[in-house]
């Protein structure tokens, strides 16, 4: 029984992990139809923000939950102003430009911090006992954090004035502009918000994965496959896709090992896209956020 609990917890963590790394990307993609290939590097920057600030003596919780999103959010706003702004409506070009940005960020971080990082940070929560077995307390924390993050993003989009303006801009940018909304500012804020969420995810994952300049590449495949399988509805899409793919990955990993697990995740995603080319939320839950 305890074993089952640990196993289920593990699968739920896998789902939460996918949802966490995909959410920032989903916000930017769902709101602005911008595919940010530098998303992995935003996660990486969040990790570096945590490592650098804890080395400077900042409390790890503040570093993870406040500094990482703040720093990456600001970087996101700068990127939007300098680069993305000129490419709205040119999806392919945005994709390529953000890929260039991704390489640039990897290069600049390698130049500053070197190709490896010597410092690692250990998870601030130890193991917890589940009957006879031990499970990682930090993973439990991440599951709860992911839930809270989804709740917060939902609240902002659904109930705040900013969320209303953002959703309006997303549906009809010209109409929103005619009603006096500064769409350019909304885009900037949305991109910053998505970047901040990515930074937060990178920050809280840093104690588990460690940080190296090229770590973005390990996130990016999973993040993209989650978001694209999910479709354009930000929260419902990411949640359902993460649930489906994460469960698939978890179960296959349990049965055969992590190598096949990742392939199963990909195969499931490709078959799903063959059946539902515009993602899960292109067919179900269309009206959801």
């Amino acid at each position: 029984m305890d074993y089952v609990v640990v196993l289920v917890l593990q699968i739920i963590y896998g789902i939460a992990n996918l949802a966490l790394i995909g959410l920032g990307l989903a916000i930017i993609f769902g709101m602005m139809r911008v595919i940010n290939l530098a998303h992995g590097e935003f996660l990486m920057l969040g990790g570096y923000a945590v490592v650098v600030s804890t080395n400077l003596g900042v409390n790890i919780w503040i570093a993870m939950l406040v500094l990482a999103p703040l720093v990456v959010g600001i970087i996101g706003v700068v990127v939007e102003r300098v680069l993305i702004r000129f490419l709205y409506g040119r999806t392919v070009d945005t994709l390529l430009a953000t890929w260039g940005l991704s390489l640039f960020l990897v290069g600049i971080v390698t130049a500053i911090f070197g190709p490896q990082t010597s410092t690692t940070i250990s998870p601030p929560i130890g193991a917890i006992a589940v009957g006879d077995y031990a499970s990682s307390g930090y993973e439990l924390f991440l599951i709860l954090l992911t839930l809270a993050l989804f709740g917060a993003v939902f609240a902002v989009l659904r109930y705040s004035r900013l969320g209303l303006l953002a959703r309006g801009t997303m549906q009809r940018a010209d109409m929103a502009a005619a009603l006096g909304v500064s769409t350019s500012r909304i885009y900037m804020i949305t991109f910053g918000l998505g970047s901040a969420v990515a930074g937060l995810a990178g920050g809280v994952l840093a104690p588990i994965t460690g940080v190296v300049p090229t770590i973005g590449a390990t996130y990016i495949a999973k993040a993209f496959i989650t978001v694209i399988t999910g479709g354009t509805a930000i929260l419902a899409g990411t949640a359902t896709a993460a649930g489906l793919l994460g469960a698939m990955n978890g179960i296959v990993t349990f049965l055969t090992g992590p190598t096949v697990g990742e392939v199963a995740l990909l195969a499931a995603a490709i078959v799903l896209l063959r059946l539902m080319p515009s993602g899960i939320t292109g067919r179900f839950f269309r009206k959801s956020l």
Partner: peptide
């Protein structure tokens, strides 16, 4: 990486 990234960005823009 930095140079290649810049090259890509500049060409796209």
């Amino acid at each position: 990486n930095m140079v290649l990234g810049l090259v890509l960005i500049l060409f796209v823009l």
